[in-house]
């Protein structure tokens, strides 16, 4: 009986830590993005609120929260608000299956730094990811306006195309790992002394493309497309309600999908990999903290890479995006699955 309470307490603590980290980091990523964008564009970025604008996210949050709550006439208020919940909840839920590090012991109690190590973790990620399309479709529909409708239809088209590609892309690593559990996938990469990116480069590229498309980052940010649709499906949202959509799409989703990408392809919390030989850890002096730092570093690197793309490239057109998904990415992913499933059993 006692162990159940301890289990519950541990899960509760994990939830608090993960939610605090995810949402807090999500908010501060806006600052990171603004600083990175600013330096790419040869300007200082936020400098006024706090040291180098460090308090800017808080000021922005306050501003958004204190704004008037506007609602479009003839809109559907229930669906309008439901869209927000449907956007925020699934995106945050994905953190439940992100493993942050190896198992450790506290007072003789074994703790895995992952909320729930379900054995269908990856399936859960993409299931929840697909829910995002409902949020956007509802947001566009409930606003009862033309621009949001066009924006949400575009986004729905993109997500449906890339869901297929991304699901087939992750099949490769899954075949190699032989499991759907995110924790086990990292473990098997460590045991096989191999980051899957070395043998699954095609899958990684497809995954990165799909990541950009699903999160609506440039070059795939057509659902926002300031110039044509004036931020698309969020046109009729105001205040913090408006703030939540970019927070979810641009930061939380990018963060979760980068983390899943790290888990699938870059060996999770393992240090630098030399294929089939072993791992080199230049951060050995950090002791037991080193895996967490490695995980964080890899996610940050992916995130910064996405930012770099976002602030450099122009944007595709909707038909070109879906064309790439169906004509290039999907065949590539399928080819990758075939090759992997032929070769993998021969080696392992």
């Amino acid at each position: 009986m006692e162990s159940v309470w301890i289990d519950l307490l541990v899960v509760f603590l994990k939830i608090i830590v993960i939610l605090a980290v995810a949402l807090g980091v999500g908010a501060y990523l806006t600052w990171v993005e603004r600083k990175v964008a600013a330096h790419i564009q040869r300007r200082p970025g936020p400098m006024v609120v706090g040291w180098h604008g460090l308090l800017q996210p808080i000021a922005d949050g306050l501003k958004l929260i204190t704004k008037e709550d506007l609602f479009p006439r003839y809109g559907n208020r229930f669906l309008y608000n439901l869209a927000l919940v449907l956007a925020l909840v699934p995106a945050t839920l994905v953190f439940a299956v992100v493993p942050f590090g190896p198992e450790f012991e506290v007072f003789g109690y074994k703790v895995k730094p992952i909320l729930t190590d379900v054995n269908v973790g990856i399936l859960l990620v993409f299931g929840l990811g697909s829910l995002a399309v409902y949020a956007i479709a509802l947001a566009g529909w409930a606003s009862n306006s033309k621009y949001p409708l066009i924006g949400s239809m575009r986004k729905a088209g993109v997500i449906i195309s890339y869901e297929v590609a991304i699901t087939f892309a992750v099949m490769g690593p899954l075949i190699l790992a032989g499991t759907l559990s995110t924790y086990e996938i990292v473990q098997s990469q460590i045991e096989q002394k191999l980051w899957y990116v070395w043998v699954q480069p095609i899958a990684f590229v497809v995954y990165m493309f799909s990541l950009l498309a699903e999160t609506g980052r440039i070059p795939f940010d057509i659902q926002e497309a300031e110039a044509e649709l004036v931020t698309g499906f969020t046109v009729e949202y105001g205040g913090m309600k408006f703030g939540i959509f970019p927070l979810v799409e641009w930061y939380i989703e990018v963060l979760t999908l980068s983390a899943i990408g790290v888990v699938l392809f870059l060996g999770g919390w393992s240090p630098i990999n030399i294929p089939f030989v072993g791992f080199v850890d230049p951060l050995f002096f950090l002791g037991p903290l080193s895996p967490y730092v490695w995980f964080l570093l890899k996610v940050t690197a992916l995130f910064l890479f996405i930012l770099w793309l976002h602030w450099t490239l122009p944007r595709y057109r909707i038909d070109q995006i879906t064309e790439i998904a169906w004509k290039v990415m999907l065949p590539l992913a399928l080819f990758n699955i075939v090759i992997t499933s032929i070769i993998a059993p021969l080696i392992w």
Binding site: A37, Q41, R42, D221, A227, T312, P314, R315
Partner: peptide, 16 residues
Amino acid sequence: YALDLGAITIFLYAFK
């Protein structure tokens, strides 16, 4: 033009 096609950074370069 670049801004309309999504390349936001060129806008700031050009304006500088």
